[in-house]
């Protein structure tokens, strides 16, 4: 915990009291959103209005059918304008419990997808509750599209690919793709200071440890206006004439002459502690 500054910053303002904010469980929307995570996975979150859900359930029941399960229907809509029926293919993910988000493994880079959340009836009819935005998964691998202006032999492309990826000269597309996947899993960024992430490996010894160090405190007092040296070096006295010095104490013998001379230079005292440290 921190202390609040009681300075000018804290002058009271007349502000209407406001409730501490918590994220709402929903915004009253009826929608589903998909986001690309990587070439194989996407993330989906949704919110379905209760009325919408009830309306669909009624519709199913009045048709003499009944509710079977909630699903995400994932449509491959690559290069088509999707109308709900013309997808290249689709697959369903059955939703369990009160999920409001899902990671979807489509496993096909460079294809476009739309997701609908909906209810499947006992008779197997799908009733959508909401339709998502469309996303295109990233391509993973080199494009097949060649540029007439910048053509070169196939193996030359793979050579440049290998050199760029830092694994020398690639041999074939499959092998290089695998190598590239490995390259991406290496940590070659730091994440900066704010991450507090340990960036270079830490020692991997067993965890138990012990450290012992010694320090020596030399302290004393004299007339506040006296001049004092310790091991020949002048030191500052506190206003009341006391002093404290702190030293890391290595093994061996330390001779520590403390010399004081009165302000008028007449009186002189010297005390010399001798300290020996030995570590076994």
């Amino acid at each position: 915990m921190k202390k609040e500054t009681m300075g000018s910053e804290a002058k009271p303002l007349r502000i209407r009291e406001r409730k501490a904010y918590r994220f709402p469980p929903g915004y009253g929307d009826n929608k589903i959103v998909i986001l690309v995570r990587d070439p194989w996975w996407m993330f989906s979150y949704w919110e379905i209005r209760k009325e919408k859900q009830e309306e669909i359930v009624r519709k199913i029941e009045t048709s003499g059918d009944s509710v079977s399960r909630s699903v995400l229907r994932v449509y491959d809509v690559t290069d088509i304008s999707f109308n709900g029926k013309n997808a290249h293919s689709y697959f369903d993910i059955e939703l369990k419990g009160l999920a409001s988000n899902w990671y979807i493994n489509v496993n096909t880079p460079d294809r476009a997808f739309v997701v609908e959340i909906g209810i499947v009836s006992k008779k197997g009819i799908f009733y959508p509750l909401a339709r998502s935005n469309m996303v295109r998964m990233p391509r993973f691998g080199m494009s097949d599209q060649l540029d007439a202006e910048w053509m070169m032999p196939e193996e030359e492309y793979w050579k440049m690919f290998g050199l760029s990826g830092g694994f020398g000269i690639g041999k074939g597309s499959l092998e290089v793709r695998e190598m590239f996947k490995k390259r991406l899993e290496e940590q070659i960024t730091s994440g900066g200071i704010s991450s507090g992430a340990s960036f270079y490996r830490k020692p991997s010894e067993r965890k138990f440890w012990l450290v012992v160090n010694c320090e020596l405190i030399v302290y004393g007092a004299t007339e506040p206006d006296a001049k004092v040296t310790v091991q020949g070096k002048p030191i500052k006295l506190r206003q009341d004439g006391t002093f404290t010095l702190r030293f890391a104490l290595p093994d061996g013998k330390q001779v520590i002459p403390v010399e004081a001379t009165s302000n008028d230079g007449i009186d002189h005292r010297c005390i010399t502690p001798i300290v020996t440290r030995k570590t076994e």
């Binding site: 990233p138 391509r139 993973f140 691998g141 080199m142 494009s143 097949d144 599209q145 060649l146 540029d147 910048w150 053509m151 070169m152 492309y157 440049m160 690919f161 050199l163 760029s164 990826g165 590239f180 390259r183 991406l184």
Partner: peptide, 17 residues
């Protein structure tokens, strides 16, 4: 990053260089 270029369309002629 490297693959932003390498996986670009059409095929890049000069790698990342």
């Amino acid at each position: 990053d490297t693959h932003g270029i390498l996986f670009g369309t059409p095929r890049p002629r000069f790698g990342v260089f």
